[in-house]
């Protein structure tokens, strides 16, 4: 018989990890194409609020997920337009996407603060109170299994399909890719929108299952942790998942520390994931000695010189 608290911790770890992982996986795809999108926080927020609003108004949970994913993807296309088509600074555009996304979602969600969901994302099986590791694993909701599936699919697509190889080529050396006839702009545009869709999925997971309600700035820095996860995972899906589990574990552990007998101020405990993220980034950078696995052309706008 395993401690019931440990089961709860495991369950909470999986859920927190799912949220971080989906957003990180999306950003990984975007960055593979050489586009850095710092707007993850804003995109998650847009997906979260539009999904929540749809769920409240229609009580149709699948429509809500779809709306969240699509609106976040459409929102990401602003970044694609500004950086891919118009070749402007990716750092600036991404940051503003975060600011705009947070403001826009607060504006949209103004009348939805405090509203309750009639239908939320339920687990796929009827187990509501898991008492073993296995029951935890089979009682998650559909987005968790989708996240696991997306991990395998993304890894496969990146390694073994034409689209994946094109993506990698464009991100590593857009000039050569262009002279070989690859459509650089099209590939980058698609990758950015896919990244937005993933962030949107993470957002609807937040408001339809993880929390589940809507309040301003409820993403509380998860988008930024997702960005750190991509670096942590060395731009590889499986390692990113491992990182998400680690960070999910920390997020789940923090509110439980006191029950294990640690006398710490809850306010100080809350900042530990951010401190640990910085520590992990430092250790990782020292360990890898600069070879982080980042796509070579990341952040560099591609412009074909016409002569």
């Amino acid at each position: 018989m395993i401690d019931i608290q440990l089961i709860g911790l495991f369950n909470a770890t999986l859920q927190a990890a799912t949220l971080l992982f989906i957003a990180a996986l999306g950003e990984l795809i975007t960055e593979k194409s050489g586009i850095l999108n710092l707007g993850v926080e804003g995109m998650i927020s847009v997906g979260a609020v539009t999904g929540f609003m749809t769920a409240v108004n229609t009580e149709n949970i699948f429509l809500a997920v779809l709306v969240g994913v699509l609106s976040s993807s459409a929102f990401a296309s602003i970044h694609a337009l500004v950086t891919v088509v118009l070749k402007q600074d990716q750092t600036v555009s991404g940051l503003i996407l975060t600011i705009l996304g947070l403001a826009l979602s607060s504006l949209l969600g103004k009348n939805y603060v405090g509203k309750k969901l009639v239908t939320k994302l339920e687990g796929v099986t009827s187990v509501t109170d898991p008492s073993s590791i296995l029951e935890v694993l089979i009682s998650q909701n559909i987005i968790f299994y989708l996240a696991v599936l997306l991990m395998f699919i993304t890894s496969f697509v990146l390694k073994h399909t034409m689209f994946g190889r094109r993506l990698e080529a464009v991100g590593e050396d857009s000039r050569s890719s262009d002279s070989m006839g690859l459509k650089v702009a099209k590939t980058q545009f698609i990758a950015t929108c896919v990244g937005g869709a993933f962030a949107g999925l993470s957002g609807v997971y937040l408001t339809l299952s993880y929390v589940p309600y809507w309040t301003d700035n409820m993403t509380s820095g998860r988008g930024w942790i997702a960005l750190a996860l991509v670096i942590f995972g060395g731009w590889k899906p499986y390692r990113t998942a491992l990182g998400a589990l680690l960070f999910g574990f920390l997020e789940a552990l923090v509110p439980r520390l006191q029950t294990y007998g640690f006398e710490l101020s809850p306010y100080i405990v809350k900042i530990t994931p951010y401190v640990i993220t910085i520590l992990v980034l430092v250790i990782l950078t020292i360990y890898k000695g600069g070879k982080t696995g980042a796509p070579k052309n990341i952040g560099v706008p591609f412009f074909r010189e016409n002569r």
Partner: peptide, 8 residues
């Protein structure tokens, strides 16, 4: 990322 995390 590090300067952003220090905000939190």
């Amino acid at each position: 990322i590090t300067t952003l995390l220090t905000n939190y």
